[in-house]
């Protein structure tokens, strides 16, 4: 009989759940009063939500046995587009245009990977540089200001404001996590996405158009990154051309810590969000404990390696070949 506990243990986010529990236990011991403050939790949850949005898109791509290195730059490009295009198209038009740009980048990358039979690592590395270069060329080094009227626009507040004192980004992340989970585990497309990453040949022999699935997934991933950029700047529009710099690495780390295997076919969106939570929490706690903030990247590396080892052993126990 599949008890809830057994289901949790067998779930693909189990490693991340264990990680979060362990982390919370350790943080409670070493810094109880600092960690369990509403201000701390609000700070960590807010940034986890933004990184979580990007990490969920990355998780979907990794499940299809591909990778997207461009998400940080796409996040930046969409955010910059949102701010820069607002004077011309208004808030609604700028949001649509920014999402269109993100979707277009994802679509082109997907087409190049699938139709051009090119490695996704190379294509999206090109996307990373191209999108970042576009930001530099477009802005000339300075992202414009966001007018007071645009900041107080209801649509801007809906994306970047607060509800009951909680940042809108957190609600967006939760809502999209639920929707994407339903898509992944409850729809035919989700089934095909999992099958494409698990055993592409087998999936294709059963009529799954893995090329369509991958193109759609790259587009979805870029849209999520673009959406995260808009949500970030709708809240805090003072930005810089470095927006999203190196975020792709944190997003990949979050997805992998959350249980995604680079061998494809296995991964968890909830796990990716938990991975983002772990990464953000470590940043906070290291600083709170007085460690130089440059140590953070070292800790992410250690956590990543530990997570990969743990998740792979879990996957093997679940009968998944890795």
């Amino acid at each position: 009989m599949r008890t809830p506990m057994r289901a949790l243990v067998r779930s693909q986010s189990f490693g991340a759940v264990i990680g979060v529990v362990l982390m919370l236990a350790v943080f409670s011991i070493v810094d109880f009063s600092g960690w369990w403050r509403s201000q701390t939790l609000a700070n960590v949850a807010h940034f986890s939500a933004i990184l979580g949005l990007v990490a969920m898109g990355q998780a979907l791509v990794i499940i299809t046995k591909e990778i997207d290195l461009s998400v940080g730059s796409v996040y930046g490009l969409s955010g910059v587009a949102f701010i820069t295009l607002e004077p011309q198209y208004g808030v609604a038009g700028a949001i649509l245009a920014a999402l269109l740009i993100a979707g277009l980048v994802g679509l082109v990358q997907g087409l190049l990977v699938v139709k051009g039979r090119l490695p996704s690592m190379i294509v999206t590395l090109g996307g990373l540089f191209t999108a970042r270069g576009l930001i530099y060329v477009w802005t000339g080094g300075t992202v414009n200001n966001f007018s007071e009227a645009a900041r107080s626009n209801p649509l801007t507040r809906m994306f970047g404001g607060e509800l009951f004192g909680i940042e809108a980004a957190i609600f967006w992340m939760i809502g999209l996590c639920i929707a994407l989970n339903i898509m992944l585990w409850g729809t035919r497309f989700g089934n095909r996405l999992l099958a494409t990453g698990g055993a592409q040949d087998s999936a294709e022999s059963r009529g799954v158009r893995s090329d369509h699935v991958k193109i759609a997934t790259f587009t979805l991933c870029a849209l999520l990154a673009g959406f995260a950029g808009i949500v970030t700047l709708a809240d805090k529009p003072q930005t810089h051309v470095t927006l999203g710099d190196l975020m792709e690495l944190e997003a990949i780390a979050a997805a992998v810590i959350g249980g995604c295997l680079l061998s494809g076919g296995r991964g968890s969106l909830v796990g990716a969000v938990l991975g983002a939570f772990i990464i953000t929490s470590f940043r906070y706690e290291l600083i709170a404990l007085g460690a130089p903030s440059s140590w953070f990247i070292t800790f992410v590396g250690v956590v990543l390696i530990v997570a990969v080892i743990f998740n792979q052993s879990l996957a093997r126990r679940a009968g998944h070949s890795v």
Binding site: N43, H46, T242, M247, Y284
Partner: peptide, 14 residues
């Protein structure tokens, strides 16, 4: 990176 910088600074100030 703006969001990371804010997050880091907020952590420090907290």
């Amino acid at each position: 990176e703006p969001a990371t910088a804010r997050n880091t600074l907020q952590s420090y100030l907290s």
